[in-house]
Computed example of a mutant assay.
Amino acid sequence: MSAEPLKIDTSQLKDCAGSLRAGTRVLLSGTVYTARDAAHKRIAELMKKREKLPFPLDGAVIYYAGPTGTPEGLAIGSCGPTTSSRMDVYTPAMLDAGLSAMIGKGERSEEVCEAIKRNGAVYFCALGGAGALACRCITSCEVIAFEDLGCESVKKLTFRDFPLFVAIDSKGGNIFKEGREAWRA
């Protein structure tokens, strides 16, 4: 992994995602949307019906997270990543619609990896088990869709130097595959 993390704003991500490489550490700032299984299912249904989405996918970043209640003095409660593979069935279509990046934990399917390459996108991993620390890098939180889903509602977050690393890049770099190959060697 790189020595110093890159500071990136989400507004620049669409233009720079293609230059990021697996293993690069990043401090991400800007607008990020939360969405998990139930929200992805609803977004996919809206896409199929060609109805308005809760947020524009073009250039967007989705964080697979379901934050806990908000304690006093913070913008959000514990906000750690959820296992990303649960969203894999929906992800290629979202990437084809312009999604720039996803944040979660764990491996992705081959279909998602191909869609990342095809669309010049990136998959970031966040440190699992550190949601109580991660929430300190989130400065605002607003529920924008599917409020009935509770912690799985779609939220608009503002990140400030949220620590991540590139897990799968647009050129086929993949820390999960590379790690297994190194272990076998």
Rank of each mutant, 00 (worst) to 15 (best):
M94I: 14
P81Y: 10
C137F: 08
I116Y: 04
G104V: 09
G66K: 05
V89S: 14
G73M: 01
D148L: 11
C125Y: 10
G120L: 09
S78C: 08
A121P: 03
A75E: 11
G131N: 02
S100C: 15
M94G: 05
K105M: 00
S100E: 06
D148F: 06
S84N: 02
P92W: 08
R136T: 15
A60G: 04
L95T: 10
A115M: 07
I76V: 15
V143K: 12
I103S: 13
S109C: 08
P71Q: 06
S78L: 10
P56F: 05
D148E: 15
T70S: 09
T70W: 03
A130H: 10
E72I: 02
F146G: 07
E147K: 14
V112K: 04
I76Y: 07
G98W: 08
I144K: 09
K105D: 10
L95S: 10
M102W: 01
L95Y: 15
L133N: 08
R136F: 03
R136S: 09
V112G: 13
Y123Q: 07
R108Q: 14
I144W: 01
E110W: 14
A101L: 10
A134Y: 06
M87D: 08
Y123G: 02
A93R: 13
L127H: 11
P92T: 08
K117Y: 04
G73K: 11
E142S: 09
A132L: 00
G128W: 01
G73Y: 03
E72P: 04
V112F: 10
S100G: 06
G77D: 09
M102G: 15
I138A: 01
Y123P: 04
A65N: 14
C135W: 05
Y90N: 11
G69S: 14
P67W: 04
S109K: 12
P71H: 04
V89R: 13
G104E: 13
E72W: 00
S85R: 15
D88P: 01
P71Y: 08
G129L: 05
A65H: 02
S109R: 07
A101R: 02
E72G: 09
D88W: 08
G98R: 06
G69P: 05
I138Q: 06
F55S: 03
I138S: 03
G98C: 03
P92V: 01
A60K: 09
A65W: 05
G131D: 04
C113H: 08
R86Q: 13
A145K: 01
G80F: 12
C79F: 08
A60P: 02
T82P: 06
E107Y: 10
E142C: 02
M87L: 13
T68S: 14
M94V: 12
F146P: 04
T83P: 07
Y64D: 12
A130M: 11
S84D: 09
L133A: 12
E147W: 00
G66S: 12
G66M: 07
I62D: 04
G104K: 06
V61I: 07
T91S: 12
S78M: 08
P71V: 00
D96A: 13
I76G: 11
L74S: 15
Y64N: 13
R118E: 14
I62S: 06
K105F: 09
R86L: 13
G106L: 01
D96Y: 12
V143L: 12
P56D: 14
M87I: 03
S84E: 00
T83S: 15
A145N: 00
A75L: 11
F124P: 09
A93L: 12
P71R: 00
A97C: 02
Y64P: 02
M94A: 11
